[in-house]
Design a protein around this nucleic acid. Structure first.
Lengths: 254, 254
DNA sequence: CGAGGTGTTGAATCAAGTCAAGTTTCGTGG
DNA sequence: CCACGAAACTTGACTTGATTCAACACCTCG
């Protein structure tokens, strides 16, 4: 039987060396000594309840957080609008990077389910990074990964159909679960339809309808938040490209 | 008379200390010594012709570039699609940050007009950053600014009308020109309508029509790529919020 | 002067949004 | 444990803003 959710951390085990996320977390590739120093600044996993806020937009920036288990959503309030969902964070991902550089968190992050996070006070992390080039590199890598991620999102939101957006989203999730050792074909959506809609620049009715259509076409089954992907191939085809062969080419200036 | 384009660098003047961009460039806030070391790794401004490629998506990452004068567009090719425009760079902005962390540039950057850039070999920059905390901070700050910028774009592309997108874009440009000492009310668009369209997730016809509508309403005048903003207030109102008071609130889970 | 890139404008179409009921699910407290 | 109410989700009918397709105007440059 395949695990349907991300594995829980062994209770109380804060040391990175034994952490199941070792391979995909920030201290990846650190030497034995450096890893111990890293361990020393890392604070014990903190439990968050569903709906609990980890960082609040505008609050002073103090720490990065690594998701140990569970999931969160990042959202941004601008103007009169309700929070635009910018990202979902799964185990091993880093929360708070957009706060570096300003003194404040630029967005809010809220737990979508029971969630554990490890806290990394940034000043201490920076001190350590000063002495450990590998860690500095990892930090850059994380930020630039986030950058690339946002850029992928920009492409997705720019002139793609609802079907393509949703397919992309599901395939993306699927891959992330796969790389965490969970089934890429059967998983639980910890976010609401309206979170997904906001993330994809749609309204929740459209998400609902599009999921229904995918189900009719036999590509997947959804029941509430339980998802089973039947035709991963078809779905990722949709995600990668326009379904109808005709990708209309914008005239390239130059 | 107000300058209509970004000031040109004094020919051959590579030294940062005398550079007009001093106040908004990477070495901002560096000590005298650090600034000299920075100068030492910085390569002389290189001229680019309109349409010339500065970095090509997928090429090995070697350097960051600072725009000295002129402008460029960043674009990303994914799947079968033609380049999605991700960003426009003006004087003082840093090109190439998304390449840090991977060994490759993640997107292409092309000059929109005659443009000068200063080259910053990254390994040398990193060496220097190791010794100069202020520079490290600046690097973080730049990356996190880029992150925040992309996030603003995500909000913009997510369920805003063509009018709001275009207004946002124009106001954004206006502010950028203002902060560079150029007129925020009268400037030249170095990018084509189709570049703007791609950037805003629209088709070029829509950009053209929307500009025409703005002009009818007396908010601005356009003639080709020359733009005059008559009613900055109205435009930024449009940019900030839905024009019709009704910002429909998505039900917030939590 | 003609060609090609760039921009404008019009008419028709359609995908997604809006509004409006419903139904299901879930959490809380009796 | 059940009942209740509030969220969350689904579905349908209708509207609309943006895209598509198409024709044409403009400007620059060889």
């Amino acid at each position: 039987m395949m695990p349907q959710t991300v594995p829980r951390p062994t209770a109380g085990a804060a040391r990175c060396k034994r952490c199941i996320l070792h391979a995909r977390c920030l201290p990846l590739g650190l030497e034995r000594d450096a890893l111990q120093s890293f361990d020393a600044i890392l604070q014990l996993p903190r439990p968050l309840k569903r709906g609990e806020t980890l960082v609040r937009q505008g609050d002073p920036f103090t720490s990065l957080y690594v998701v140990r288990s569970g999931s969160l959503k990042q959202s941004l309030v601008q103007g009169g609008r309700r929070g635009q969902v910018l990202n979902f964070y799964l185990a091993g991902e880093i929360v708070g990077l957009d706060g570096i550089g300003e003194q404040r968190y630029h967005s809010s992050v809220v737990a979508l389910e029971a969630t554990f996070v490890c806290k990394l006070p940034f000043t201490r992390l920076e001190d350590l990074a000063e002495r450990v080039p590998g860690l500095r590199g990892q930090l850059y890598r994380c930020m630039s990964r986030e950058l690339r991620n946002d850029q992928r999102m920009l492409c997705l939101l720019s002139g793609r159909t609802a079907e393509q957006r949703l397919a992309s989203f599901l395939i993306g999730l699927s891959e992330r679960f796969r790389s965490r050792g969970c089934s890429p074909y059967r998983f639980h959506l910890s976010m609401s339809r309206s979170d997904i809609a906001s993330y994809l620049g749609l309204v929740l009715e459209t998400v609902s309808r599009t999921l229904a259509r995918f189900q009719e076409q036999g590509m997947l089954s959804v029941s509430g938040r339980e998802l089973v992907i039947h035709d991963h191939e078809a779905l990722s085809m949709l995600a990668r490209e326009g379904v109808s062969g005709g990708c209309r080419l914008a005239p390239q200036s130059d």
